[in-house]
């Protein structure tokens, strides 16, 4: 609440994570209230299994609906969308998802960089991107793209991260607008929702 928000209204939240990410998602996402009105997109590094285990795991704890992102699906407000395993997830200018099986980027598919680059194009300054724990550097280039498009970059405090390399790399690259604990990240995301309400009234 103390975080005065003077940025243009945030329209979408993108969250990238790798090693240790599921635990942090379980802290942040259940704190989003049932009337949270922004779309959330999660890109997490998981194995190429046929089942999307994250969707089931988050569904149990979250107040918001949790779905796997499908090609041509329109990004839905108040919904948590999770990238499918073994595909890159992208978002188009009309805010529909697309998928690709192009080569891995940063040894990852889905790659956080791939999603964030497309999301920076699609939402520009309306995007808030969150980079959580991870043991490689995927996501850092994507956060830079978000920053270049005037989006807002939030990074997990490496001291609270299971694998600090990914958040620390983003901080070292000088692209973090906020460095916060998982609980702090959740509070900030919830405040975007309130400010977007105000924006809607104005």
């Amino acid at each position: 609440m103390s975080d005065r928000w003077r940025h243009p209204a945030i329209k979408a939240i993108a969250i990238g994570c790798s090693a240790g990410g599921l635990d942090v998602l379980h802290v942040i996402l259940p704190l989003l209230p049932a009337d949270f009105a922004l779309p959330v997109v999660v890109v997490a590094h998981i194995g190429p299994s046929a089942e999307n285990l994250i969707v089931g795991a988050l569904r149990r704890d979250c107040l918001l609906p949790v779905v796997e992102a499908e090609e041509r699906m329109t990004v839905t407000p108040g919904t948590i969308h999770v990238a499918p395993p073994d595909y890159h997830l992208l978002v188009e200018a009309d805010h529909t998802f697309s998928l690709s099986v192009d080569s891995k980027v940063n040894n990852s598919r889905p790659s956080i960089d791939v999603f964030l680059a497309s999301a920076a194009d699609a939402w520009g300054s309306g995007l808030a991107a969150v980079l959580l724990t991870g043991a490689n550097c995927d996501g850092v280039g994507g956060m830079a793209a978000v920053k270049a498009a005037d989006g807002f970059c939030i990074v997990q405090d490496p001291a609270t991260a299971y694998a600090p390399i990914m958040p620390q790399s983003a901080i070292d690259a000088g692209i973090a607008d906020r460095v916060l604990t998982p609980e702090g990240i959740a509070a900030l995301i919830v405040s975007f929702h309130s400010s977007s309400h105000k924006g809607a009234v104005a």
């Binding site: 992208l90 188009e92 690709s100 192009d102 680059a117 497309s118 194009d121």
Partner: peptide, 9 residues
């Protein structure tokens, strides 16, 4: 073509 992935390619 889906533009976001075409742009990357």
């Amino acid at each position: 073509y889906a533009r976001a992935s075409l742009k990357r390619r």
